[in-house]
Design a protein around this nucleic acid. Structure first.
Lengths: 218, 218
DNA sequence: GTCTATAACCTGATAGAC
DNA sequence: GTCTATCAGGTTATAGAC
């Protein structure tokens, strides 16, 4: 005979309607979409619940409160970007190739998840970066500044100020995504996040930046 | 004899404590600061009132509702930028000088009112540009694209795609202001909106962009 | 023109049934 | 794990006294 302990209901058919992981991810997806438009303070848990298909109470079942949900969204969005940036091994490359690689990766990440730009932008404006995973800035700007400094020293890049230039570079790459909704009229009838325009943006911003930093243009 | 129409109370001592124009401007100032951080939906009229020193009810005396106040703020912030952009007479200049002039003006406007960047960014992300003064995009991107096209035709600029490049240029110039709060750690102990760093940002982003578009660098 | 008070509504978060 | 019901607190906007 089975004792009362057997009442544990942890073992569940994975295709059950009661699926912890799936629901949690659905909530995170909807939350990401909401936070990417409104930011933390402007987001409505009701709206997130509506998009998810579950009820508002479920959000509080999986996450302690709105802030914690927000932080989970931030971490999930940026974890991919971070790990990619860390695996680049840029030291093995000459500065020019290293910068091309870094830019390609960054632009690829943002093309892959166009909400990243808005999320980071809103986080900076509204919360002064309070909920940022701290490593992000160090990794992104840190590596870029290093590459730029190396290029200047080797005479491949012109005499630029690395920090200001790094900031301008990130801006040049990310603004297309952040300001999407305002830029539509420049490409009437076309999808700004479609494959073709994304490739064009990648190519054109890379061209602008590389031509902008090189001492001698090929 | 004077009829009832005479009851018009438009004539007021300008130094009265009840000063219509002054109060209205105070409200607009406080509203600008609030909207630049929270956007339209996130802004609290209570917070605006607190910053202004008058009561919440005054806001509704001068403005019909929050949307109208928001629109008034947008227009006031951008009207200066617009009129400057219109008076530039760029057609008289060669493309290189014209782009330098346009960038200088744009960077000067944003240095002058660093909130413009955030306001426009939030408006784009949150409201999809619904409350934009429509002329703005046309003037800013329109003139820049024209200048770029002229430069390509004359062989001064390289074979770039004008629209994508214009977007990247605006991003390179504005990101410093938008992401301010996240960039502090790059310049520890210094004021990002101080005269010196603003001049550096202007110079460095101009250098990057001009080197990035020119066919032959001097 | 400026204030206080309040109406009408919305939102984050919880309790408790199933 | 998921839902319904609900509360406490906060928010827009207005009414009315001064």
């Amino acid at each position: 005979m089975m004792p009362a302990i057997d009442k544990q209901k942890t073992i569940k058919p994975p295709n059950s309607t009661r699926n912890s992981e799936a629901t949690k991810n659905q909530i995170l997806d909807a939350a990401e979409a909401e936070f990417a438009v409104t930011g933390l303070s402007g987001a409505r848990t009701e709206a997130i619940a509506a998009q998810t298909g579950v009820t508002k109470a479920m959000i509080y079942y999986y996450f302690q409160n709105k802030q914690e949900l927000y932080q989970a969204v931030l971490e999930r969005s940026l974890v991919g970007m971070l790990s990619m940036a860390e695996d680049l091994q840029l030291d093995c490359l000459d500065p020019d190739a290293a910068l091309v690689t870094l830019l390609t990766t960054m632009l690829h990440c943002m093309s892959d998840n166009p909400r990243i730009g808005s999320i980071l932008c809103l986080e900076a404006i509204q919360n002064k970066g309070k909920y940022y995973p701290k490593q992000l800035g160090n990794i992104l700007y840190g590596t870029m500044i290093e590459v730029l400094e190396r290029g200047i020293k080797l005479g491949v890049f012109r005499q630029l100020e690395p920090r200001h230039t790094a900031v301008s570079i990130v801006g040049a790459c990310s603004f297309y995504f952040t300001a999407q909704e305002n830029l539509k009229y420049l490409w009437p009838g076309r999808r700004l996040l479609g494959k073709e325009l994304l490739q064009n943006h990648t190519q054109e911003s890379m061209n602008l930046i590389m031509a902008g930093v090189r001492l001698v243009n090929n």
